[in-house]
């Protein structure tokens, strides 16, 4: 999947909601094309939360999450809908 490694790097760097939103059509070489990425720095930075969540563990979870939801045999939307169904059935809202 194009951009997957970069999305994992964004998550590992501490970003959340890292998304490849689309391609620009600018082919910069035979192997590469312009793409648009957006991500957010998490708003929660209370000292308590930082103490309870080592950054490495959080980053590792975000990498896992980004890869789990990355488009593959199923597209991202389908995966999110399955996750929503599973969490509702498990009485754990997302």
């Amino acid at each position: 999947m194009p951009g997957r490694d970069f999305l994992a790097l964004l998550a590992a760097a501490g970003f959340t909601l890292a998304t490849l939103t689309g391609f620009t059509g600018f082919k910069t070489s035979p192997y590469t094309e312009g793409a648009l990425f957006m991500a957010e720095k998490p708003a929660v930075t209370r000292q308590d939360d930082r103490d309870m969540t080592p950054p490495d563990a959080l980053a590792a979870f975000q990498v896992f999450s980004a890869q789990a939801f990355a488009a593959g045999a199923l597209d991202k939307k389908t995966k999110h809908l399955i996750a929503l169904g599973a969490s509702l059935a498990g009485a754990c809202e997302l």
């Binding site: 951009g3 970069f6 760097a13 970003f15 490849l20 793409a35 990425f37 720095k41 998490p42």
Partner: peptide, 29 residues
Amino acid sequence: KAKALREACRVLKPGGRLLMADMTLVQPL
């Protein structure tokens, strides 16, 4: 890239956004 992205995250306020265009591999090198 890992270090450069950590820097981008460092300079952002909590809740701040990264908006970027870049080239990405669309087929293997």
